[in-house]
Computed example of a mutant assay.
Amino acid sequence: MADIHVEEFYKDVAIALTQLYGAFPRRVNVFVEDIAGPDEPDEFGLHSKRHMACFGALLWLAEEGLLRYVDTIRQEALDQAVLTRHAFIRLSAPAPDALAREFGVADGKATGALPPSIQEDLSTHIHLVRTALRSGNSARISQVMRAIFFADHSND
């Protein structure tokens, strides 16, 4: 089992990437509160560790070339964020067959009767991210995010 902060990181970036993919190619504001939940700054105006970890995850995505943004809105949001070409290609790419099978989208029972274009959509990384988020299963979310981050994407 991974450290809880790593599991939270995977969930935060999964939610952020899903939001940005859903808005692509429009620029949108990405609010930490929409990802990590409500946060009340303390008497000194400082956010919780959880809030700051999520904000840090968003900044990390930008530093790693997965998203771009115009500015930060204090420590509460990224202003006018959009996926990079690199991230869009990764999320749109088919997931490895073994991972797709684990999520039940590569076997004939789940997709055999569907047109090939629909089958292809169901096997993309973004579909698996959405499926993992809907499940609420931290291990599944971590598994699919690791596949996105660590897979060989030499053609990106």
Score class of each variant (00 low, 15 high):
149 F>D: 08
86 H>N: 11
131 T>H: 15
29 N>I: 08
133 L>I: 12
40 E>M: 12
110 A>V: 04
152 D>E: 02
151 A>V: 04
106 A>D: 13
120 E>C: 11
36 A>W: 15
53 A>M: 12
12 D>L: 01
55 F>N: 00
120 E>H: 03
9 F>H: 11
122 L>C: 08
63 E>N: 12
143 Q>A: 14
139 A>S: 08
97 D>K: 13
89 I>K: 05
90 R>H: 00
21 Y>I: 02
83 L>R: 01
134 R>L: 14
128 L>K: 07
39 D>A: 12
140 R>Q: 14
69 Y>P: 13
41 P>N: 02
100 A>C: 12
114 L>V: 10
11 K>S: 08
76 E>A: 04
102 E>D: 13
23 A>S: 10
131 T>N: 13
144 V>H: 01
70 V>Y: 09
156 D>F: 04
96 P>N: 14
45 G>K: 02
74 R>G: 02
25 P>I: 12
62 A>I: 00
109 K>D: 15
106 A>Q: 07
137 N>P: 10
152 D>S: 12
99 L>C: 03
60 W>F: 11
21 Y>K: 02
25 P>Y: 09
136 G>R: 08
122 L>K: 15
71 D>Y: 10
54 C>H: 04
28 V>N: 07
106 A>P: 05
145 M>P: 08
148 I>D: 04
143 Q>R: 15
154 S>G: 09
73 I>W: 00
110 A>E: 04
97 D>F: 07
87 A>H: 05
96 P>L: 03
87 A>K: 11
86 H>D: 12
144 V>P: 10
127 H>M: 06
49 K>Q: 13
56 G>V: 09
104 G>R: 09
91 L>I: 07
8 E>R: 14
95 A>F: 07
55 F>V: 00
22 G>F: 00
32 V>C: 05
83 L>T: 01
64 E>G: 00
75 Q>D: 14
4 I>P: 10
